[in-house]
């Protein structure tokens, strides 16, 4: 039988999915053990048990001075920035994407501009953002917005253009105005795409968030990682990295579920 026709059974598939994680965990445990047996003071690869103890401490023990649990404070601060940044991007890109996709005049005026804008490397603008918007929350949110909005706008505009011409004509023969076509034909069909766009953009959004927090902040997941880097606190860094990964995974999963729930018509044909 050809390789392309061989499929794993369910149990096999679960095992294969777990395999890379198991391999990484074992490789790490072995590497850590080798280094620690050579030098018990080694900080580069802390033992898994050390990481676990650190994680428990970070999640449960309040800071001595402020009495806050820093990890939760960092998480809250970062998620707010991320959420506001992504929400603002979603609103802007949805509006611009619909306008560009539906109105030939807007398309003529804006599509080239957005295409060029999406080529600007956002991180290179970070110093400008700090100068213009200060070192507070605003510059971090603006970085996320600048970073992901152009891409989302382009994609949504293209999706609007991909709506079959027949549907747009049909709506007109039913008496729909431009506004009604936007609201009742384009928008509902573009919303699922917006959600998948957000899912795709979240990776970049995290990147921009952590970069901005690393450069100038006093709270946040990225700030903490770059702070403890000075003490080579690998156990803290690894805990934070795994925590961020888990958050990203859960957000992605929630968005996917939301999309399935909210847009049943997408799967009607399957």
């Amino acid at each position: 039988m050809r390789l392309i026709n061989k499929t794993p059974a369910r149990a096999g598939a679960v095992f294969l999915a777990a395999l890379p994680f198991i391999v990484i965990a074992i490789a790490y445990a072995i590497g850590s053990d080798i280094r620690l047996s050579a030098n018990p003071q080694d900080k580069l690869l802390p033992a898994p048990s050390t990481i676990w103890d650190t994680a428990v401490r970070l999640f449960t023990e309040p800071d001595k001075r402020t009495r806050d649990i820093l990890l939760w404070k960092d998480t809250w601060a970062s998620l707010i920035r991320l959420g506001v940044g992504v929400a603002v991007s979603a609103v802007i890109s949805l509006t611009l994407g619909m306008v560009i996709g539906l109105l030939p005049y807007a398309r003529a005026g804006l599509s080239g501009f957005v295409a060029v804008l999406s080529m600007v490397p956002p991180l290179a603008l970070l110093p400008i953002l700090f100068i213009v918007f200060g070192l507070g929350e605003l510059s971090k949110i603006v970085l996320i917005v600048i970073g992901i909005t152009p891409f989302m706008t382009r994609d949504l505009a293209q999706r609007v253009l991909d709506i079959p011409r027949e549907q747009i004509v049909k709506a007109q023969t039913l008496g729909a105005s431009s506004g009604v076509i936007a609201l009742r034909v384009a928008l509902p069909q573009i919303l699922p795409r917006l959600i998948s766009n957000i899912r795709l953009s979240l990776g970049s959004a995290w990147l921009f968030l952590i970069a901005a927090e690393a450069v100038a902040s006093n709270v946040g997941l990225g700030y903490r990682i770059f702070l403890v880097r000075r003490y080579l606190a690998m156990d803290v860094i690894l805990t934070y990295v795994m925590w961020i990964t888990l958050l990203a995974f859960v957000i992605d999963w929630a968005l996917r579920r939301l999309s399935r729930r909210a847009f049943p018509w997408m799967e009607a044909g399957l």
Binding site: P164, E166, Q167, V169, K170, A171, Q172, T173, L174, G175, V185, P188, Q189, F263, W265, A268
Partner: peptide, 21 residues
């Protein structure tokens, strides 16, 4: 000058709205 309610149309496909019941 543009399609209006005087003229109804049915194409070979894509004539109904997929997101509406």
């Amino acid at each position: 000058l543009e399609p209006n309610r005087e003229r109804g149309v049915v194409f070979q496909k894509y004539s109904v709205f997929p997101h509406l019941t």
